[in-house]
Design a protein around this nucleic acid. Structure first.
Length: 230
DNA sequence: GAGGAGATCGTCT
DNA sequence: GACGATCTCCTCT
């Protein structure tokens, strides 16, 4: 029997303890946050808010799963073979959005890490919807009523392609966007939430360097992609 | 619930 | 021309 949640209200919903978020009061993460190695950034991004401004409306989710990619030293990373027209953002300043199109269907969002010239990054894999839930569900083609279960809400943003669709992230619109700028319509916020336990597992969907524990998630969180872990 | 396969197109060789 | 940092649908158990 799936867990019942509180009724969806217009514009936003708080359906889980993790979802209690102060969106407008959240401090924007500065460039220095991303000017570090991808493993550190990936771990510290868990629990932060990914926020999109759509006109006068905000959409937001709390990051519950991500992966570190270690640039030219990482056989699974897009930057492994050096700079190309697709991945040039990774070699640029930290805190920029690297958006790529995959499998003919999906966009995936990363954020660049380390100083300019070093191509480490973090892939956002899943978030828990916390604000604008109904609007994000619509972007995903989902009809979620007042009795929506966590199982149904997971379909909004549990997976990199789903997250991007929910937040209307595309390469054309967002690639190379500065996520640390107050003028940006896409940024990361810190409202003080700290996850109690973080788990590390091998990354998903890759064929090289498959054993390294570079996927990070909030333990026992229902919105992690795939099976709940930790 | 688990596993398999198709969709679909940008990127790189 | 092959492959891919995915998702969805379908079938089987």
């Amino acid at each position: 029997m799936p867990r019942r949640i509180a009724a969806l209200k217009p514009g936003d919903v708080a359906h889980d303890p993790l979802a209690d978020a102060d969106i407008r009061g959240a401090a924007i993460l500065p460039r220095e946050f991303f000017n570090r190695d991808a493993i550190t950034v990936a771990r510290e991004l868990l629990g932060k808010l990914l926020i999109r401004r759509e006109g006068r409306r905000l959409l937001a989710g709390r990051i519950v799963e991500d992966e570190a990619y270690l640039g030219e030293n990482d056989p699974a990373a897009h930057a492994y073979s050096g700079r190309t027209p697709r991945n040039f953002v990774l070699f640029g300043p930290p805190g920029r959005a690297y958006v790529y199109f995959i499998y003919g269907n999906h966009y995936c969002l990363n954020v660049s890490c380390m100083p300019e010239g070093e191509a480490e990054c973090v892939l956002f894999r899943a978030m828990e919807p916390v604000f604008g839930t109904e609007a994000m569900a619509r972007e995903r083609g989902l009809e979620l009523g007042p009795t929506a279960t966590v199982t149904q809400l997971r379909m909004i943003s549990s997976g990199p392609g789903r997250m991007s669709e929910a937040l209307r992230i595309t390469r054309e619109r967002d690639n190379n966007k500065d996520l640390t700028s107050r003028r940006s319509d896409l940024w990361l916020g810190d409202d003080g939430f700290r996850p109690s336990t973080i788990v590390a597992t091998p990354r998903v969907g890759i064929t090289k360097a498959i054993d390294r524990p570079l996927r990070f998630a909030i333990a026992q969180n229902a919105y992690v992609s795939g099976k709940k872990i930790g």
